[in-house]
């Protein structure tokens, strides 16, 4: 069946079904040199399963559409090369587990859009006209790291706080949107405070930062290599703690103030 010298037949198990239920189906499909998992899914569509539902767009790891679980691990299908698997291995593709299935590999990710709306937007500084913003590169580096996020939602999918705990979804924004709070908090010109908005406090009180016990699973799956836990969540926690949550810090600040 294989057409070229470098090609071989691979075995796949792909979840097919919808909200009502479904099952893993077996496929045997040709693979060529240099291909990624998404290529194989496309070949299946073109040759064996025209209606196999899959989300994708850029096929270059830039849009964050093609998220799925490959052998149980949350990954981008377009950035997972077939050469990372042995030829004998059966490769299993399932939809993201933390979100409701729509059909086949497509899930309903509206949870994330709801959470995005709950984070108050950037507040422009008063008195600075467009074109007058001045910021040093070192001061924007950190927020820029977080803005590399392609919203693939793999971190949201993997975080144990919501992965198998539907009940936590209401209270917990998830790593991606806690990171968004951190990004705005670290933005050198964000004027949230002038509007009485304390971003650090809302992270704790409104976006569920307290649920996070810094397991770093989110960081591990992030295809952009963003250090979500170390650079966004932990600093946010520390700063939240600084402020008032940790009685020791609070006491310390009182004492030192009395001294001077």
């Amino acid at each position: 069946m294989t057409a070229t010298g470098t090609g071989y037949d691979a075995r796949f198990r792909i979840w097919r079904g919808d909200a009502e239920g479904g099952e893993l189906r077996d496929f045997t499909v040709e693979v060529h040199e240099g291909e990624v998992v998404l290529d194989i899914v496309h070949r299946l569509q073109a040759t064996q399963a025209a209606d196999l539902a899959v989300r994708w767009n850029c096929k270059a790891g830039k849009c964050g559409s093609c998220s799925a679980e490959i052998n149980g691990r949350p990954r981008l299908m377009c950035m997972t090369r077939m050469s990372t698997f042995s030829r004998e291995e059966t490769i299993t593709i399932t939809p993201l587990r933390a979100f409701p299935v729509v059909r086949d590999l497509v899930t309903d990710v509206s949870f994330n859009y709801t959470k995005a709306r709950e984070v108050p937007a950037f507040v422009p500084p008063q008195g600075l006209a467009p074109g007058e913003y001045r910021m040093q590169q070192v001061d924007v580096d950190r927020s820029q790291e977080f803005r590399k996020c392609i919203e693939c939602f793999l971190c949201q999918d993997t975080c144990h706080v919501v992965r198998d705990h539907e009940e936590n979804k209401a209270a917990f924004a998830g790593p991606r949107f806690l990171m968004r709070v951190a990004e705005l908090d670290m933005h050198p010109l964000d004027a949230a405070e002038s509007e009485g908005l304390d971003r650090k406090r809302t992270a704790q009180e409104e976006h569920g930062l307290g649920y996070c016990n810094i397991t770093k699973c989110c960081t591990e799956v992030c295809p952009e290599g963003i250090k979500i836990t170390d650079n966004a969540l932990i600093p946010l926690k520390e700063r939240a703690v600084d402020r008032k949550y940790d009685p020791l810090v609070w006491l310390g600040s009182k004492i030192s103030r009395r001294r001077d």
Binding site: F122, P124, Y133, Q137, Q144
Partner: peptide, 22 residues
Amino acid sequence: APDRVWELETWGALFDRTPDGK
């Protein structure tokens, strides 16, 4: 075009900077 880019900054965009912060 320049006005359209500067406007993005007021909406939160973070472009790479020159040494003088522009």
